[in-house]
Write a protein that binds this DNA or RNA. Structure first.
Lengths: 205, 205, 205, 205
DNA sequence: TATGAATGAGATTTCATTCAT
DNA sequence: GATGAATGAAATCTCATTCAT
């Protein structure tokens, strides 16, 4: 049949992204079928192909979307007057705050790289690299200025990102620890881990 | 046809575990078919069912196998005379050493929990809990003895495990950093992160 | 959206016939989708249904169109003063000339009969029969007048039509042989094949 | 489920070829679905893929099979003592006899070339070329020896093959004309068409 | 112990067609 | 006259699994 009265392309497009994000995060790209997504959206499977030419394309859209928004969000957050320690703390707070409210995006971004075909993989890897570079630059600057005592900026970057992103594997909103408490704890652990002596100053959560 | 001359049940059983581990780690449980495994082993798909009653059972075998061996290995490693700091350092060295040589097992253990059906999930979760308890106990002991200054043993446990396990996402053998160098760097970062002042003593890699 | 400024029903109608003819001739009715046709025309698939109620109807239009024009064209060609041999030669020249410039129509007319549903099939078969009857009548007349020595008018008709229509399977314009040369060669072969002794007189190509 | 007691690969393989040949000849490659073939064979659609990796492969098998058998059959038929006229008559008789009993193969061979993807197309074209070369050689020999008066061996080849293959479009076994009568009529028409004066000697049907 | 044939369900994707706008 | 959104059916192909041999 045809279009239902009141149906609307933009609404459907958003619903597809939302539902597929949720499903893929829960079960994994390979385990989610186009039919499952369609059912969640409330359309037939064929309708999905008006918005994404293949299942793979849908995954790429999801991941690119997330990475681009993440990078933009940091740009709005950054404060050029920060010392390295302040900037690292700000980054920790930002990363946790941003990720804790978007567990599905994060999970997909980290877990479904292997499901990407070469073209999509290259695109997403580039965006990931840009985000890693932000943290690496902070650490390098702190090392140059003698504020941090870290042996290797790259290893530090990877270790800290793993630690931060790991929050999502155990954090439950409404759990024993508030988000701001977690942010403070992680900031402290991480500043210590790079050998920073400067006291951790409170930052907006 | 019947059994090929020279074919051997034990050999096949091992080959199935080895190849399925490799394939599932690379592509994910849902993306690996029984036929792919069979081809890698060099048998027909039907033959796999002589060893594992379902695809799901095969996954459970793989994961239980890994967790049990990991726990056993730590038992052989532990030294009851260690101070908390020494034990934490030992744990860091152990975890990195053990995991760096078994990237596939680790990846599956962390990634395919969601692919487990309820029965298998309960079993594997129990074993994971036992491993986490080891680290949590170390931290708690260090806190009690005043050697560590950590606000929350559980959060510390999860943060440290995430950091450690993250090594596998970027470590390449033969890369710029040797395994023992990485172990030292992580031990330092982690001891600092729990507020330990005791100098890091060298441990066997 | 509504009609685009400058779009025009007649133009679209012609474009649909032209593009569908081309596509169906190349790939076959079953292998051509309405979307492929729409894309070639430069409209959305839905727009095709303003001109043809179904895909099948579109095919019937294409075939009826061709057969009717072919029959009309012969009517303009015929010369009632021709002897049977002259008329046969005229027919050969006509058929080759007409078909060589319309390879797509011919191909569809001969190949897609099987794609017609009963109603359309009856219609097109009737028109085909009329065309075959023209040739059969020529041969019969030649036999009655003793100019041809052919054992069976029907077999002769079918054999000659197959031979003539086969030209399209190998003729390439600009190839080694000119159209008029081919017409002469075929006229000679065909007149001989029906045992006609009268010399082949030149006819307009 | 599993294999049915008494089922047998060779039997199924033959049935697939037989049924797909029949169906593709009637409706065309694009219009025949794997399900239709499977139903005709009496298996599920998936079972077809044990024998042919794709639908396209199945088509190639069908066409190669036919062309190879056709070429072999002529090799058994040929008589090196034939004069060109005798050989041409023999070829006509052979072609009609062979094709009249295999209408499906012929139809597919001539009609589904366009359904072949490049790889398969190249293969089948090569075999077709070999068959055409047989007739072309006969005509060329007749021209050299002065027995035939034909202006162009290539055009003659294509014209005669079209004529001969066209028999299949109208012949119905048990119809008004017997096969041997048709063979004689065509041999006569064709020998005349190449300007051969030698009387047509009877050949085995 | 393993093969080879098959199933039945389900995967992604495409199709002709419809209809509110 | 045409679009854009959608349907429901069907296409090709893959999958886990079974079982006679």
């Amino acid at each position: 049949m045809a279009r239902l009265a009141g149906s609307d392309g933009k609404t459907t497009a958003l619903a597809i992204l939302k539902q597929s994000r949720k499903l893929i995060a829960r079960h994994g790209y390979a385990a989610v079928s186009m039919r499952m997504i369609a059912e969640a959206v409330g359309v037939q499977a064929g309708a999905l192909y008006q918005y994404h030419s293949t299942k793979q394309q849908l995954l790429v859209s999801l991941m690119r979307d997330h990475m681009e928004k993440l990078l933009e969000a940091w740009q709005k957050e950054v404060n050029i007057q920060d010392s390295p320690a302040q900037e690292l703390a700000r980054f920790v707070h930002f990363h946790i705050r941003y990720n804790i409210t978007r567990p599905d995006e994060i999970f997909i971004a980290y877990m479904e790289l292997r499901a990407l075909e070469p073209e999509g993989f290259k695109l997403i890897e580039k965006l990931r690299g840009e985000y890693e570079a932000i943290l690496k630059t902070i650490i390098s600057r702190g090392m140059k200025q003698g504020q941090f005592d870290c042996e290797d900026a790259h290893v530090g970057t990877m270790a800290i990102l793993a630690m931060l992103t790991g929050v999502n594997t155990w954090y439950r909103s409404g759990g024993r620890l508030s988000q701001s408490k977690i942010q403070d704890m992680y900031a402290k652990m991480i500043l210590r881990s790079v050998g920073c002596k400067e006291p951790n100053r409170r930052l907006p959560t």
